[in-house]
Write a protein that binds this DNA or RNA. Structure first.
Lengths: 348, 348
DNA sequence: AGCCAAAATGTAAGCGCTTACATTTTATAT
DNA sequence: ATATAAAATGTAAGCGCTTACATTTTGGCT
């Protein structure tokens, strides 16, 4: 029993199989799939019927090899374990999908060396473009990307001066606005709990924002009490206790994100401190967590979903040869209940 | 000015370039890269030097096309916006990376139709294997995967009866254990807040677990008050209020996950109900959030990270032609402060 | 009907890699 | 030294697709 015909066993049909089935050339099938307007209605139908009948779907490796594009976008985020990134990336992904692209995610654990490695990995894997968080990295990385002609969009930051494409927000300004509000409430001794500023430009900018506001208010920015730690509730708790042990004791503690702030809130509760009666606390990000806190958190709202969406759009534009503009999204302050007037000195 | 030599412009070196540079054939270079032990130490060195010198890195599309493998694993999760999945997937990814594989993540928004679509997409994109959440899906999906010879591991569930590979835990048993604890505390009227059970087998199993325990304790399982909703703090809040309006009013509310439980806790606080004095509340998952709750949450601890890790190992094994065993990871109960004795009838 | 540009389709050459098979080199035993 | 098996390397044929270029078909004119 000869079986010289295509071994219709279990294996996946190829473009050539479709071409045979439809009685056209492979080029025509390819065109039907990729630019349907370059073929007749009639052939399109014949080919598409064959496609359906055989259950054909293109082999992306082959397509990528032949076309020189993978339609895959890479994203490198500090961690997946944080709702903030998750939400923005989710929106990014949804937008990409609309454009026929797939997302490849890697995480760097907030480590610059790992991030560089991941950038290499993703480009080698064929990412056509990249989403990166923050702007701080070795210039060589940008050179590498430029040389390979791989567009990258920087997010979670806004960097209008630079010519790197960015879609994000102004961390410094956002935090400054919040700090102004704190100062207006009469606070003079301010504490701050932040992520490690050496490897995290967003964190650094936020701290700078506080200092900016202090300076403008006539306070000495060097008197800002800073606790650096990694983002976690537990660490926020510990850092808050340290700040409360300082003399003079801060009457307001501004946290680098909501997670730290929730930790601070927990510590405050354990220390029997009234919020905001005894101490005011602020956050950053406005995640859902903020609303469960024993006292609703005053924080900075960041439009994560829109950021992800716009970032995707910018990248698609860059991939199509356009030069998209940088986008700086506005943030806003969520004034809730953890920020209040500084306690009168005697009350302390 | 002729430039017949390789246009050493900006473009990326290929395997052939390396072969020329090293004075060997492309096959040898390929072997150096993929099975170094099939090559002399000497040639290996020569070739690797050339690789370094040229900054060569392989083109994955070409490799995938030629080898028929992409070294890419797909994962489809209900949502990225939930720390639970994030953590398990993160561990999964780390383990994959150790094995030279890349993760492709897609999300299904808890919708079965979207999940099927994503499965198609990912396999078409060349995923060599898949991580899926839960076991409930159209049998055709499994047939499709089997036909394409794509190994899949089911996680977040344990399904020893079935012959589908799974690495997870027993939702029903875990919730039953917790329910037993609730019953031992004298609760007779139980409420339950769960994700929609029609499309979520984990949620369904958990509810069944509660009923199992009720039955064994001589209670009528049909009296379990069930509120179905989507996972979110807000929804947990709303559902809890509904349950509190029921008569007889539940003295214990078991939630399908910690997020719902935190919402319930918030509502309880707003309703001026003492926890656990007036009502007991339980969660599931043991996420960090549980520890910030105004009252530390009694919940089920799930070893997410280990689950992710083992799932990756199982998949790698399957890819190497082995038949890995199903793994059922033990869960444990975190007894904290939201579960207490049922209030005496007069106290209500 | 006959001409011609435009539209549709076909032909075939790769894209960069892996791998079966052929050939050469090396090591081992006589 | 010589024969022989084993190890190392080379040769070249694809993997399934896209796309420049060549060829054929179509349809609007005169």
């Amino acid at each position: 029993m000869e079986d010289n015909a295509k071994p219709s066993g279990t294996d996946v049909p190829t473009l050539a199989d479709v071409a045979v089935a439809a009685g056209v050339s492979t080029a025509t099938v390819s065109r039907c799939l990729n630019s349907p307007d370059r073929v007749t209605q009639k052939t399109l139908k014949i080919v598409m019927d064959a496609v359906d009948r055989l259950g054909y779907s293109p082999n992306y490796s082959a397509r990528a090899l032949a076309a020189g594009r993978t339609n895959t976008i890479g994203a490198i985020i500090p961690t997946m374990e944080n709702a903030i990134f998750a939400r923005g990336i989710q929106a990014f992904q949804e937008e990409l999908q609309q454009n026929g692209c797939t997302l490849l995610v890697a995480s760097s654990s907030y480590r610059q060396d790992l991030e560089e490695e991941q950038i290499k990995t993703l480009t080698v894997r064929g990412a056509d473009a990249l989403l990166l968080i923050g702007y701080q990295r070795d210039p060589k990385v940008y050179e590498f990307l430029a040389k390979r002609k791989i567009p990258a969009v920087l997010t979670w930051v806004s960097d209008p001066d630079s010519d790197h494409l960015s879609v994000g927000f102004n961390n410094r300004q956002a935090m400054k606005s919040l700090a102004e509000l704190v100062l207006e409430n009469g606070h003079k001794v301010i504490g701050c709990i932040t992520a490690e500023t050496s490897a995290n430009d967003r964190a650094r900018d936020r701290v700078s924002g506080i200092r900016d506001a202090m300076k403008e208010a006539g306070l000495d920015p060097s008197e800002l009490l800073v606790e650096e730690t990694q983002y976690s509730i537990e660490n926020g708790d510990v850092a808050f206790r340290k700040l409360m042990a300082a003399r003079p004791r801060p009457t307001a503690v501004m946290c680098g994100n909501d997670v730290l702030a929730v930790g601070a809130l927990r510590a405050a509760s354990a220390l029997k401190l009234e919020i905001p009666g005894d101490v005011s606390i602020t956050g950053f990000d406005d995640i859902e967590l903020a609303s469960v806190a024993p006292v609703p958190l005053t924080t900075v709202h960041v439009p994560h979903r829109r950021m992800g969406q716009f970032a995707a759009q910018a990248l698609m534009a860059a991939l199509n040869g356009n030069a998209p503009d940088n986008i700086e999204l506005p943030t806003s302050i969520c004034f809730r209940e953890t920020l209040g007037k500084a306690p009168a000195p005697n009350k302390r």
